[in-house]
Amino acid sequence: MTGDAAIKISGLKKRYGATMALKGIDLAVAPKELFSFLGPNGAGKSTTIRIVTGLTRMTSGSVFLNGYDIEREPTEAKRQFGVVQQQINLDQELSVWENLDIHAHLYGLSKRERKERILELLVLMDMEDRAQSLVKHLSGGLKRRVMFARALLHRPSILFLDEPTSGLDAAIRRRIWGIIKEIQQMGTTIFLTTHHIEEAEFLSDRVAFLDEGRIVAIDTPESLKSGIGEWAVDRVKYGRLVTSYFKDRQEALAYKEEGGFTLRKVNLEDAFLQMTGKKVRR
């Protein structure tokens, strides 16, 4: 056991052949915090989640979950978290109840605990009437909710969410955000990876910008944005979209009237672009 952080990652590197996917990640997530990893596809978000959840071996570094080392104390470390992977990984031929029951077995819940907990989570996910439905008959949004229920069955204090709203429409995405907020309010530490700007802004206590396997900034969404101003004006120059940033709204408005076409609030995408020269959504 070490430290007070729920998640502590130090010097984490991962090499795939000649490619260095992670070039030294250092971060600590406090208990009950909702921490987001924001970055474009290929930045190393999923690789990080796969390493901290024991699916992929690290090249070097260390990962502690509630003080347990994922490499040296894997069984105890794995009891600390639940995970919702980016891809749907449910048994399609089994029912919702059967999927949840198998997971509860894996974590050693008693028969009574299994039943109580599954019912409780089906209510939380608003899916009581779908318990006996085969997973293959569920919509993408419902499958995601089953994955959330499964990740929470053994009452983990840490929840890893790898692009949890990937491929979902806006309405279902908002429903999932509500569920994530509810889970955080229950006292769970949440580590989220996403490339949705609004998702990171809406949900996160702190955000890390990840680019090419490196963290380029970590702070609250407000602080990350405030560094570049409060207002943004988009203009087209020589066929390219150019964005200018302003602290003052009047100044921004005047600039817009000179030929800009959008006046808007600065968002995390702007902050990411300023720091890396790249967009999160490419």
Partner: peptide, 14 residues
């Protein structure tokens, strides 16, 4: 295909 194996690898089983 189903990626269920990931579920076993991240579970606290030997």
């Amino acid at each position: 295909y189903w990626r269920i194996f990931d579920e076993f690898l991240s579970a606290p089983i030997s």
